[in-house]
């Protein structure tokens, strides 16, 4: 009997119970899963004009017909903590100079139909987009690789920006003090998608405020 017992014990000894090990590992995994960020944040580049005084000669002149102005508005509500919160608002736009006779200011929506923002910008930026689409097709066919493609797009954009006679949109983004940050970023996004090389963020000038007031029926909210 004694001998039998011994042999049986030996058999059990070779097995190590891994259950606690697994338990511990699971705990650690849970910890790491909860504490990590898998996705790194992305960033959107933005360049603002300098505050320094610029000579009249150095100012960039643009063609009136190229200018597109977007005015972003929003409805401010309060969230449950009492902070101001804006979901998404109306966007108005006009082309060229503000129409101070009839005070026309149209609403425009995000989206890629012909009357929406993307359609509008694509129409305005047709020349460049046709070129870029050609490169894209070549890239898809495998005739050019990534770096060549990027290089070509970059060159096409630079050429267009340098060519004073090229047909291209110059976009003015004018958020009111009620505009939501998400809308501004979304509009900046459209600039990227539609390869608009010249755009800037501005504040509303007097004419814009008049147009806005005529359209909406109440004056612009004062800047905070």
């Amino acid at each position: 009997m004694a001998k039998k017992d011994k042999s049986r014990q030996k058999k059990f000894d070779t097995r190590i119970d891994f259950t606690p090990m697994v338990d511990m590992n699971m705990l650690l995994i849970t910890f790491f899963m909860l504490c990590t960020t898998m996705l790194k944040s992305q960033t959107l580049d933005l360049v603002l004009p300098t505050n320094d005084d610029v000579n009249k000669e150095e100012e960039t002149k643009i063609k009136q017909s190229d200018a597109v102005t977007f005015i972003i508005d929003g409805n401010v509500t309060k969230d449950n903590l009492g902070n101001e919160e804006v979901k998404s608002g109306t966007i108005y736009f006009y082309e060229g100079q503000p129409d101070m006779e009839n005070f026309t200011l149209d609403e425009i929506k995000f989206g890629d139909s012909k009357d929406a923002i993307r359609g509008k910008l694509q129409e305005k930026n047709k020349e460049l987009l046709v070129q870029i689409n050609k490169f894209k097709q070549e890239w898809k066919n495998g005739t050019i690789n990534d770096s060549v493609y990027n290089e070509k797009v970059k060159k096409a954009r630079a050429d267009q920006a340098a060519d004073i006679n090229a047909k291209r949109p110059i976009v003015m983004i004018k958020p009111t003090s009620n505009a939501s940050y998400a809308d501004v970023v979304r509009l900046l996004d459209e600039m990227q998608i539609n390869q608009v090389s010249t755009y800037q963020i501005e504040t509303l000038n007097k004419q814009d405020s008049i147009l806005y007031e005529k359209k909406v029926g109440h004056p612009l909210a004062a800047a905070k």
């Binding site: 919160e85 958020p175 003090s177 939501s180």
Partner: peptide, 24 residues
Amino acid sequence: YSPYSLVQVVMDNLQTERLNKFTL
């Protein structure tokens, strides 16, 4: 969901300090 005006103040400050290029 923040109003753009909150971000604008930051941008104005950056501009004053001549940090005209940045990312969002």
